[in-house]
């Protein structure tokens, strides 16, 4: 037993050690710094109690605006990426010529980093959209990314374009694990195509929903690269998501203490949304 214990910790140690040093300890240290007026330049900083936390909800309206904006973008992104991901998955699991090729095309946007994607789409939204608008007279294509609304939709479009292929792969994996016999027996029992999908395939897909929704929530909430390259908060910080807001609080305003307090709230929000979702969808999973 003792030898087993030693083995256990020996195999776990390298990963756990890095994880502790890089993730856990900084979070704990960060908690203390969130109670100070740390400006990032000198190490000495004064204790201010809960002032930073109170400021976030009373003086600094930027954070709350970013929170609202982030929730909005994430809400639509999560629904759309998973819905489109599922449609793509159903499409590519039908055996037809080129389905494999399509699978790799749909996944491809994931390879391009958020930063490059943001810049690429900025080009499309500003240059291409406005030239199409000039050609066709569609005024809603004009001045994209110049307003809060277009920035909002822009971020959602980019996020969905990137993540739906990722979700597709997750749903493909689960679809392939559904035994053919389950669908076949439903057919024999007289179930139509739609009914089979709703009553058999859909419930059996639940584990994939759990993972898909979980990963898309995590990805959308934490979105930073796409945000800084696509809108960078323009106009007037109104399209600034939480991650970018924290980044700017620290590196533009040099308010490290305040930024740390924000990041703790950020962490709590993400963790509680993610965990609630896990609990809800896990309950709905059926054993195969």
């Amino acid at each position: 037993m003792k030898k087993n214990n030693l083995k256990f910790w020996f195999f776990l140690a390298p990963a756990l050690l890095c994880f502790l040093v890089v993730v856990i300890i900084p979070i704990i240290v960060g908690f203390f710094y969130s109670l100070t007026d740390w400006n990032g330049l000198n190490v000495n900083c004064g204790f201010v109690g809960l002032k930073n936390f109170i400021d976030i909800f009373t003086r600094d309206s930027g954070f709350l605006n970013s929170l609202k904006f982030t929730i909005g973008v994430s809400f639509f992104s999560v629904i759309l990426t998973n819905a489109i991901g599922l449609v793509l998955a159903i499409l590519v699991t039908k055996k037809f010529k080129g389905s494999k090729f399509l699978k790799s095309i749909f996944f491809m946007p994931n390879l391009i980093g958020g930063l490059l994607l943001g810049f690429a789409w900025k080009f499309i939204f500003t240059e291409i959209f406005s030239s199409i608008s000039k050609l066709t007279g569609l005024t809603f294509l004009n001045e994209w990314l110049g307003t809060t609304e277009t920035g909002f939709f822009g971020l959602i479009i980019v996020n969905v374009w990137q993540l739906s292929g990722y979700m597709m792969i997750i749903y493909v994996a689960q679809l392939q694990q559904i035994p053919y016999s389950a669908k076949e027996s439903a057919k024999i029992d007289g179930a139509g195509k739609v009914q089979t999908f709703l009553k058999i395939t859909f419930p059996l897909l639940m584990p994939a929903f759990t993972i898909g929704v979980f990963l898309s929530i995590a990805n959308s909430f934490k979105m930073f690269d796409q945000n800084i390259s696509l809108t960078n908060g323009v106009p007037y910080h109104s399209t600034q998501m939480l991650a970018l807001n924290i980044y700017n609080t620290a590196f533009t305003n040099n308010e490290f203490g305040l930024a740390q307090a924000k990041s703790i709230i950020f962490l709590i929000i993400i963790a509680s949304i993610g965990l609630t979702q896990l609990l809800i969808t896990k309950k709905k999973e059926v054993e195969m």
């Binding site: 979070i27 990963l215 930073f224 620290a250 962490l267």
Partner: peptide, 14 residues
């Protein structure tokens, strides 16, 4: 669960 942790919350102390 720690997959959810955003880099921002460890960035500054780190």
């Amino acid at each position: 669960i720690s997959i959810l942790i955003p880099f921002q919350s460890t960035m500054l102390p780190l």
